[in-house]
Amino acid sequence: MVKEPSTDPELRSLASEDLPQATRDLEALSTNLKKSLIPVHPFAHLPCLLELRPGAGGDEAALFASDLLRMYQVYCKSHGLQCKVLSIDTAPSVGAEDQIQEAVIEILSPGSYERFRGEAGVHRVQRVPATETKGRTHTSAVSVLVLPNFPNEVAQDNPNEFNDPNSDYYVNPQDVRTDTMRASGAGGQHVNKTDSAIRLTHIPTGTVVSMQESRSQHSNRTSAWQVLRARLAQARREAREEEMAAMRINAGVKRTGRGDKIRTYNWQQQRVTDHRSAITLNRLDDVLEGGNSLDEIMTSVKEWLASKDLEAMIIDEETASKQKL
């Protein structure tokens, strides 16, 4: 109408005034549409568990794991998210206080799973380690797992979630072997050892969770069950998603699983690059301090995830309609 020569000039000016507003509205509407089209992740409302495990790179990877742990802890603190260390295993080598072999932290605030799920994957570090004498840059990696956390309250609100065998949350107690580390000797009043460790083994999948963080066996048991539930639910969901992903690969879209490297932290260039959303920031320190830069990266990843979900949905839709024909 604006470009039509026959339009009344007054009307034309009115129309062109409306145009920018309309364009903005359109953008907002299409984002909203995207948001409402993409199904909410079934675990989105839940709190989460974050597991950090060093991969390739030995001691350096273990050091980087403790850097990441700190980054997430500071991030939680500055965003008012309640977080708690469930367990930290440090490396059994010299001066290993800050070398992590495995750490699990629990972020208790609801919706944390949605916030952190983009963090899952391999985080790569490029720097000259403190232990390196010849000044060479090393590349190491830490894998981050983000698991939905099912606090016991969930069971109280909705007992079916835990008792319904079809639910992802369901773990049959018959399938779980419990071992206490206090098996040998006379026990009881004869000893006052402080072995409070608990080990749970989910027999069908071979999943093992050990917990010895607390002096209380009771609380170790509770934490161990929490981690076991989370790992099993995640595994079930992943198995389902893999099936879907296989379907989509046939249709030409590749999804990024947790095996791929997702982000690089480069010390010399003071930069952080996320390989999925292709964002690069030159504020390494702020990212590691859990500052706004980390927020920026996480937001960009969230947008990327949403666009991926949309792509996947379109493919699914197309496949479905093809099948109909």
Binding site: T180, R182, Q189, N192, R215, S216, Q217, H218
Partner: peptide
């Protein structure tokens, strides 16, 4: 010594609660 969800104070002269007793 933790006992269930409780925190039990321990002093010399009184037996320490055992995990088997808790169980």
């Amino acid at each position: 010594q933790p006992f269930g969800t409780l925190d039990i104070l321990c002093r010399l002269g009184v037996l320490i609660p055992r995990p088997e007793t808790e169980s």
